[in-house]
Design a binder for these strands. Structure first.
Lengths: 197, 197, 197, 197
DNA sequence: TATGAATGAGTGTTCATTCAT
DNA sequence: GATGAATGAACACTCATTCAT
């Protein structure tokens, strides 16, 4: 039973961490140190491994997102946690993967919409309206706000090769570049630095 | 000689517009209405077609970027043009393509750094410093500013399936969502709406 | 010890009754409700299970054939019983199986020639000669007579799909078609109907 | 274009002459002296090669059958030709093949029922009725008569290994055994020897 | 310049078989 | 005896690539 888990974790890492989206069963098997046929023994087909692994990863991500919004934290704290979610993603290539895969079958995404997401978002929308009225944040729709945070957080991971090339940054310099961004994103929303305590 | 061009253009569209990043030579040949072997006649290998096509597309993109910064326009106009560059990309899947391809061979990107990019950026960095001093824009490094714009512009294209799923937006609604963003991005930089004239 | 028997019987049914001549060990194991590895535990290999099962089935068939000829019945009764043997075979696909398997290794068949078959046939050959002299039956060699009966009895089972197609007969009509044949075969030999009593 | 034909003919021989019904693409390719991938180049899949080859062979067989019945020959001559069709089949394993394949998908056979077969059979049924009235032949339905001939003709080819074993006949002896059968079958129908001229 | 034919390397998948428990 | 896990060999099939014309 732990081998099944090993294959799944290896596949997640190969696909979403290493970004080898077209990885063959052979590559995954090699990486996991198991026989290629074992993948079929546990998952029947490469596609089912894909689906399983994608499903689980998306569930985890959605769970975290919902967790952030459901918490008792203040508005600013929620935003802070949400930024973290996308700035330090466990799976930097997950989103790229989804984009490339979903081109073929966009309907698949619908499976990843959890039941309680809607109410959570509705409640957050109200909270946002309150904060806008209070003047904590400039007027903005919830959708645009959330997409802004995701954009500012994720894109630098996705476009790493482009950005490194344009600005001639080595890996260390890029690391530093990324570190500055959390506070920068926060400031683009609230016009103030993060209050640590 | 025009067949070579035809193949190249077809490949660009298949890869970067349609997002068929793993397109086979057969698909490209079919789409172009030519024999599959012709691709090898002109480009020797599938990889060389890839490289050529990527090289040209990147050159074009870099050319546009440089064009924006080199122009005689005002600072705000430059920013405006730069936003446009990433919001209405001719090749929505180009960046995804780069990301996925560069994972395998990150050194490749170095080929895409044009000679005059550095001086253009240096000059823009000075212009930015001036505007910061003038208070036109909040203090920010040039790198972070540019990456912010690229993030806010490109990411919603890359992550379209995710965003549509989370917020339950159909294609029409998503289109509208995207339209609002240009001004929104501009406002996030200058705290004012775009001045049309 | 009864599991071994269970596997064997299941295999016989799968191969020779259901006609699934290429059945995998998994299918047989599933049908028998046992673990796939057990088949190898008892029979070492799929081929040995095949051989065992074929051997037993052939022995049983040969036993019946010998039983018919060895009995004290009259000549006509023997023929009648012999017809029955091939018209209502317990294993309709046994012969098809033998044909397809023996192509690969024809020597295998020699294992299925029982010791007492020769004497039984010799004795039947004499009985036939007597009946020919008496005029009960038209002159014919024993081999041809026996093959005729086997042909007329078995072939309609083997060629069922062809015959149904040519004459457009559904399963019910084909059933009726087969029922008529016993008397028809008997008449082709003795020019008279079967005397029931 | 002749390679395609070569593959097809090789496949026919492997399947229907040599009786290697489960032949792999590799075996067929080796036999034909071509690369395995060529089979897919011409026929897309192993199944399509099967279907094509089966279709053609069945069409040919059906054509011959119809040809016999459609001819201007006398009743006895037709029967004679029909016997020939099954006694000296070009593809001894064709029928075995059909039997084993059709177990999986009996509906497939329906494709092999030619349009003009029905009228040809209807006309032959009338001719048979006339001959029965004339006393040329003992009363029998057309279906049973035809199946009898097919049985007596084909079965000895299908069951060759069994028969050789039971009667201990070497290949030469079996050859002789088969030669006797044509006249024997004819006599089982008309109670007289074939009139050669 | 263009094409149909041909090939080798590699992919996902199946399966009989083995092994440790 | 019995089982889940694991493996190697084979299979159909795909694809980029080459070659003769």
């Amino acid at each position: 039973m732990q081998t099944e888990e090993l294959i799944k974790e290896t596949a997640k890492n190969v696909f979403f961490q290493k970004g080898h989206l077209r990885a063959t069963t052979q590559e995954i098997a090699d990486e996991a140190g198991v026989n290629r046929a074992l993948i079929h023994y546990y998952f029947r087909s490469r596609n089912q491994l894909f689906d399983t692994v994608l499903q689980e990863t998306m569930s985890e991500l959605m769970g975290r997102i919902i967790g952030v919004f459901k918490s008792e934290a203040t508005f600013k704290q929620k935003i802070c946690s949400f930024i973290d979610l996308f700035i330090t993603s466990q799976y930097p290539y997950l989103q790229t993967f989804i984009v490339t895969e979903m081109v073929k079958d966009p309907e698949k995404m619908k499976l990843f919409h959890p039941k309680d997401l809607d109410e959570v978002l509705t409640s957050f929308r109200k909270q946002l309206a309150v904060e806008v009225r209070k003047g904590t944040i400039a007027p903005v729709s919830m959708e645009q706000l959330i997409v802004n945070i995701m954009s500012l957080g994720s894109y630098p991971y996705l476009a790493k090769p482009i950005i490194q090339t344009v600005f001639i940054l080595d890996d260390q310099a890029y690391e530093n570049f990324l570190k500055e961004r959390k506070n920068l994103i926060y400031r683009s929303i609230f016009n103030e630095d993060i209050q640590e305590e």
